[in-house]
């Protein structure tokens, strides 16, 4: 088994380099960092666009007008206090039952995602790595990915090999992958299991909802490197929800958005994340109780 710190090659930027004097986004948007490996040169880059999105649960509105534009190969971080609506945003993009959109839209290369059922959003290239991955008793990783690949017109026979390769890239012991999906896995193991799935499915855009929570230091580095690699290898666009800058030291953010009480109250370059680390959310009118 490859130790976690060796996975992902040498692309990870050391922590002390991140957040330095790079005022501008670390990379340019628009897919100039290399086309997806498996579609050599064919992809001109995609756009995930969120416009004026308002959504909530029947009792109350949680998102009060979100605008975001994420391009292939870009990494946008979303930070914000507990309860500000980050997970709601992640799930509304994926179409979780129970969340109601009241205004605005979401499109992927012009396709109206909100009109599609969840599985078609996934087939269109969206992936959600949830904050709390769901346990599915009795269902194996291979079977689930097999169905997903079949529905995408790919060969499910590839699954075991792809899974093994992805697990080895992040130094994840394959014996965990024989368990039913997420069942009896620790918090960090779940996040690594999810990262394996991301790697196998190869989406265009991934929403990572606190992929860093639960991961130990080495695992976090390995996972972050894997995803950072995907931004160049397959031009993956990433919306990374996080509370800490540690993730962004390896998975370098082009932009950082601050989500407070259902609205994006500030956006900036990676330095914004470092700033928040110092100031907290007080400058955005959030007191210590998070309200």
């Amino acid at each position: 088994m490859t130790p976690a710190r060796e996975a992902g090659g040498d692309r990870g930027a050391p922590a002390r380099e991140a957040g330095g004097d790079r005022g501008a986004p670390a990379r340019e948007a628009g897919g100039d960092r290399g086309a997806p490996a498996r579609e050599a040169g064919a992809d001109q880059g995609s756009v995930l666009s969120v416009v004026g999105l308002r959504a909530g649960v029947p009792e109350r509105e949680i998102l009060e007008g979100i605008d975001l534009e994420l391009r292939s190969g870009e990494v946008h971080a979303v930070m914000g206090p507990n309860g500000s609506g980050k997970s709601t945003l992640a799930h509304v993009l994926m179409g979780r039952p129970g969340i109601r959109v009241t205004a605005g839209g979401v499109s992927l290369d012009g396709i109206d995602l909100l009109a599609l059922p969840t599985w078609k959003r996934a087939q269109a290239g969206l992936f959600l790595l949830p904050q709390y991955p769901t346990e599915v008793p009795g269902v194996s990783l291979d079977d689930a990915l097999g169905e997903a690949l079949t529905a995408a017109g790919r060969d499910r026979a590839e699954v075991p090999e792809l899974v093994a390769a992805e697990a080895s890239r992040i130094g994840f012991d394959p014996r965990f992958l024989d368990r039913p999906l997420n069942v009896d896995l620790s918090g960090g193991e779940k996040k690594r299991n999810e990262t394996v799935q991301l790697g196998v499915l190869g989406p265009r855009f991934a929403v990572l909802d606190e992929v860093d929570s639960g991961l130990d230091i080495d695992a976090l580095r390995a996972v972050a490197r894997r995803i950072e690699a995907a931004t160049t290898e397959s031009n993956l666009g990433v919306l990374a929800i996080t509370h800490y800058t540690r993730l962004l030291h390896v998975l370098r953010a082009d932009a950082v958005h601050v989500l407070v009480r259902g609205s994006i109250v500030a956006s900036g370059g990676p330095e914004l994340a470092e700033e928040l680390e110092q100031t907290g959310y007080a400058p955005y009118g959030v007191d210590e109780r998070g309200t």
Binding site: G95, P130, L145, A152, L181
Partner: peptide
């Protein structure tokens, strides 16, 4: 569980079968 499987691109009938 169904939503989770669907979020991986598994169609609902296949998700239910799983």
């Amino acid at each position: 569980q169904r939503y989770y499987l669907e979020s991986r691109g598994v169609p609902p009938a296949a998700a239910d079968r799983l």
